[in-house]
Design a protein around this nucleic acid. Structure first.
Length: 982
RNA sequence: GCCCGGGUGGCGGAAUGGUAUACGCGCACGACUUAAAAUCGUGUGAGGCAACUCGUGUGGGUUCGAGUCCCACCCCGGGCACCA
């Protein structure tokens, strides 16, 4: 009688033995890799913002661990470190919530997190754990900050910054989600503060370009590309004139534009409220009071209670004119007004734009509201990009002057549409303009020829639209330059049209909404919008008009010529802003900087541009966070440390007079931007890490984490890696070769959150089913990169599965030699599980193991070797059970070299499959008739078409369908099917 | 609005253009049991007695053959959002 599997005893036992034997400790320092290649398998470390681990963390960690265990068994020296990122706002907020000092709370959380991380059964290298709040850790966080300052990558600037009124601190742009705080969802406001920044923008091009060489989840790369937001354009200067004096130039305003060729259409200049020119024209503008009020209001809009919604975004645009000053459009030389408006952002480009209402939606909206001129300078060009009629590559364009003719019914609100018979086209009446014809004449000719109507009356010529398309009936690429003309029929008088015309298309009367659906080419849709007068700004490329000598050129070719013409410069602009690093909170690494008033007065300092500022000398690091009873944020733009005299009073490192320490702390994301480096050398007191170890272990081989860090953590780690590379600290400039984002764990189709009350406590599940069952359940939910839907009852299936594995092996009832049929299935499973784990398809790997178990139970017994292989395949998912059974029944008996250490299954060799055993001799031939499956039967793998066909035709089920019919065609797919077409 | 993912049984989810729904959950029936639980076995897309027909968000298309490829649209999830 076999005992029932007791996971409680087993899991505890192996946890202790693994730890004691250190089986998951890599040969970190042994610089000669003893046959085992190093493999750095990293999972983003958790931030303890609660008592214990969330099941979402468990999910992510288990997924990473399965991969690590797999690699370890494949012979790699796997390093799977663990630590806690507990030095920041999230931990502090939690401490505030429960009313415990963060230093104390962190210790409580730490204990619980580590307990849970041990229970889940991951192969962590515990000896190298790090905590970001450990002074021995943040000494180096501060060291990095100091180095950044010394090397000109950290600077101070007064700026309107994102301020969270609830967290009472500033936030980096990346931490503001849709105008709300990333942590607490409070509406973020703008505040003018002096802050420390890291010059990440200096690395924008490299951060962008190097994405190409990374094997990272595509969605992460896309998110980073968008965040960095490279745009190519031009910087152009507009001269400013004081209207009263009329002559005197009062300066220039630089604008950035990606569409310099539209400059002839720039009808006003728009400045952000923070723009320098605004305040400098105080005494020149006649409506200063109004301007001042507007600026105040613009600020208050985001400064005031978070009650009224969305400070920006879709709100109606507002602005005020700077009356009395004008700008000169450098292309037209005409004077244009200057407006101040908050739809122009201060932080992007130059904080000023040239507004081209005809070709920019936002300018159009603003110009319409304030009755500013809209001046069309681009004729639209529509390039057909959907079938039918996609432009044929390589074929020259045939130019053609043409008309698009809109014809209105004599009594109804309907218009003529042509439905083409040989192509799926729906258009207005259209045709060429012959020599000497006006568009009006051409239109009338086309109406007569194509519809037979006799009495159209010309109403309007809306202008020109160009279209590039492949003319399917005529088999040529066309570049049509069409006047859109509008005519109304006076009556229904009509003559017959030729047979030829009738064969080409049908004439239909359509209402406006019907036309919307009916028309196919973009140019005809444009014509419709012209008719409906709903044409807004045309933002696409096109052909220039009203642009002096540039008329007739297309956007692409004229772009840089116009730039040159107006004396502008080509410029590349990034959306990325510098990383705001200061935080006005308590729980974090103090920024290791000192400000000396005296040195500042004498213009002395470590950096020329920043007199008075010194980095804390390396020997004085770490700057230890002082214990402060009242650690609550003050909300005055200052950290609680600003009221701790013994902390901020310090001697100037240069002149030794009384100076003041920086009292802000650094962003939590700085702690986590380099932790992977500390793991490899966590006890090093002399340096951040040893270069030699870095060469052995880095870059990271596999990094797994949540997609929510696409542009936060993952951009910062890349940034610092590049910085360290430039400093010669490391030899790589990307921290991780491979990154995979795991999916989101949800429950019963809904997000897991406290407010929804559907929190899953992993401890309960471990207690009731064991860690192995929980691990397997989590991994079985769906593809790891897609996430999964946690259903409580589902875990029973995995629990049953483990019990059955135990029964099968623990019965100790093995055959002497394995049954060949099972051996084949086993080898197929080895192949599948190996490939699935490599691709993070854990759910299908588990399913394959279930099938294997089903087969084993059905078979007449399996051999010891077969059982051992099975356990090995299971080991990454269920490390405890597989170890228990492996040790109980095989262990060193299988010839694994014995030593002081027990021969853990987790250090054993991953099974290999024999491709000969996977080959099939027969397969199930599917017989289809007209593509419908009618029969299937076993045949030899080598079967030829002729034989397959005759066999198939002899089948009764097939004959039912082929009886008396002629087989017109046979499709034979070797190893799969035969399809008889009748 | 823009950019990513997705839409397949009662549910989670499988399917190199080739037998749709593997595997698991749930459910039903049966065996064991005094009984229940556990366990084991059988069945389980819909309609139909059956032959068969219909079925992967909707509508079209390509193909001998489409969940898979193309076009248009609808819905859900996630990210970004006045970036000139």
């Amino acid at each position: 009688m076999v005992k029932k599997y007791n996971y409680k005893v087993t899991e505890k036992k192996w946890q202790e033995r693994w730890l004691k034997q250190g089986i998951y400790e890599p040969g970190l320092k042994s610089l000669s890799a003893k046959g085992r290649k190093p493999f750095y398998n990293l999972m983003m470390f958790p931030y303890p913002s609660a008592e214990g681990l969330h099941v979402g963390n468990m999910y992510a960690f288990t997924g990473s661990d399965v991969y690590g265990r797999f690699k370890r068994m494949q012979g790699y020296d796997v390093f799977e470190p663990i630590g806690l990122d507990g030095f920041g706002i999230h931990s502090e907020n939690y401490a505030l919530k429960v009313g415990t000092h963060p230093a104390k709370q962190t210790k409580i959380s730490e204990k619980n997190f580590y307990r849970q991380l041990k229970e889940i059964g991951n192969g962590f290298a515990w000896k190298e754990k790090v905590e970001t709040y450990d002074p021995e850790y943040y000494r180096w966080t501060q060291w990095i900050f100091a180095e950044m300052f010394k090397r000109g990558l950290a600077y101070r600037k007064k700026q309107a910054v994102n301020w969270c009124p609830s967290c009472k601190t500033v936030l980096a742009d990346e931490q503001v989600i849709s105008g709300k705080c990333e942590r607490c969802s409070t509406e973020v406001i703008k505040k003018d503060l002096e802050q420390w920044f890291f010059r990440i923008t200096k690395y924008a091009d490299r951060l962008l370009k190097d994405l190409e060489k990374l094997d990272w989840s595509e969605r992460i790369k896309i998110a980073q590309r968008n965040w960095i937001g490279k745009s190519e354009g031009a910087e152009v200067e507009f001269r400013i004139k004081n209207k009263e004096s009329g002559i005197k130039d009062t300066g220039v305003v630089k604008v950035f534009t990606t569409r310099p060729e539209t400059i002839f259409g720039a009808t006003y200049l728009a400045l952000s409220p923070e723009h320098d020119l605004v305040s400098s024209t105080k005494y020149q503008v006649s409506n200063w009071k109004e301007v001042e009020d507007y600026i105040k209001k613009a600020k208050a809009k985001s400064d005031d209670p978070p009650s009224h919604k969305a400070t920006e975004g879709q709100g109606e645009k507002t602005g005020v004119e700077l009356k009395g000053v004008r700008a000169i459009n450098p292309a037209t030389k005409k004077e244009i007004p200057i407006w101040v408006t908050d739809y122009v952002l201060a932080g992007y480009g130059t904080g000023a734009i040239m507004a081209v209402p005809a070709h920019d939606e936002r300018d159009f909206e603003f110009a319409t509201k304030y009755k500013l001129p809209i001046y069309d300078v681009i004729e639209p060009v529509y390039i057909q990009d959907t079938e039918p009629g996609i432009v044929k590559e390589g074929l020259p364009f045939e130019h053609r002057d043409a008309v698009i003719v809109i014809v209105k019914h004599w009594s109804e609100d309907k218009y003529i549409g042509l439905k083409w018979k040989k192509v799926a086209w729906g258009t207005f009446i259209t045709g060429g303009i012959e020599k000497g014809q006006t568009p009006e004449e051409a239109a009338k000719t086309e109406i007569r020829e194509e519809t037979g109507y006799l009495n159209p009356k010309f109403v309007d010529d809306f202008g020109i639209v160009h279209g590039k398309f492949y003319h399917v009936p005529k088999k040529v690429n066309r570049f049509a330059h069409s006047h859109v003309v509008y005519l109304e029929l006076q009556d229904g008088a009509r003559e017959d049209i030729s047979e030829k015309e009738r064969e080409i298309h049908d004439v239909l009367w359509l209402t406006l909404p019907e036309l919307e659906k009916f028309l196919t080419p973009g140019s005809h849709h444009h014509a419709l919008r012209m008719l409906k007068k709903t044409q807004r700004a045309y933002e696409e490329l096109g052909i220039l008009r009203n642009s002096g000598d540039f008329d007739g050129m297309d956007s692409e070719e004229s772009k840089w010529k116009v730039t040159e013409f107006v004396g502008g410069k080509r410029k590349i602009q990034y959306r990325l802003r510098d990383w705001l690093i200061s935080r006005q909170r308590y729980w974090g690494p103090p920024i290791p900087m000192i400000f000396c008033e005296k040195c500042a007065e004498n213009k002395k300092g470590e950096q020329k541009e920043m007199p008075g500022w010194y980095a804390v000398p390396e020997k004085d690091l770490p700057v230890v966070l002082p214990p402060v009873k009242d650690f609550r944020p003050r909300g005055k733009g200052q950290s609680p440390l600003a009221s701790v005299k013994f902390f901020y009073e310090v001697k100037c490192p240069a002149c030794k007079s009384l100076a003041r320490r920086e009292t802000d702390i650094s962003d939590n994301f700085l702690d986590s931007a380099w932790y992977y480096l500390r793991y490899i050398d966590s006890k090093n007191k002399k340096e951040l890490f040893s270069k030699k170890l870095a060469e052995k272990w880095l870059p990271i081989n596999m990094y797994i984490g949540g997609a929510e860090h696409s542009v936060l953590h993952l951009l910062y780690v890349r940034f610092l890696a590049k910085v360290f590379y430039d400093w010669g600290l490391v030899r790589f400039d990307e921290p991780a070769k491979k990154f995979r984002a795991h999916g989101l764990l949800i429950r019963d189709g809904k997000k897991i959150s406290k407010s929804k009350g559907n929190i899953i406590n992993p401890d309960d599940f471990i207690k009731e089913f064991g860690a192995d069952a929980l691990r397997m359940h989590l991994m079985f939910l769906g593809p790891f990169e897609d996430g999964g839907d946690f259903r409580d009852s589902g875990i029973l299936g995995l629990s049953r599965f483990l019990d059955r594995v135990f029964k099968l092996v623990a019965s100790d009832n093995f055959r002497k030699s394995g049954n060949l049929d099972f051996e084949r299935i086993l080898h197929k499973t080895i192949k599948k599980v190996t490939e699935d784990i490599e691709n993070l398809h854990y759910n299908t790997a588990i399913s394959a193991l279930m099938i294997l178990l089903n087969e084993a139970e059905k078979s007449d017994g399996i051999s010891k070797e077969q059982a051992a292989s099975f356990l090995k395949l299971l080991a990454p998912f269920a490390p405890y059970l597989s170890e228990e059974l492996y040790q109980q029944f095989f262990g060193s008996k299988l010839g694994v070299r014995s030593s002081k250490r027990f021969d853990s299954i987790h250090l054993s060799e991953w099974p290999k499959y024999d491709s000969n055993l996977i080959k099939e001799n027969t397969f199930n031939l599917v017989v289809q008739v007209n593509g419908k499956t009618r029969d299937a039967f076993e045949v030899s793998t080598n079967i030829k078409e002729a034989e397959a066909k005759s066999l198939a035709l002899n089948r009764e089920r097939v004959q039912k369908f082929t009886e008396g019919k002629e087989i017109k065609k046979t499709i034979f797919v070797a190893g799969r099917l035969i399809n008889l077409v009748i």
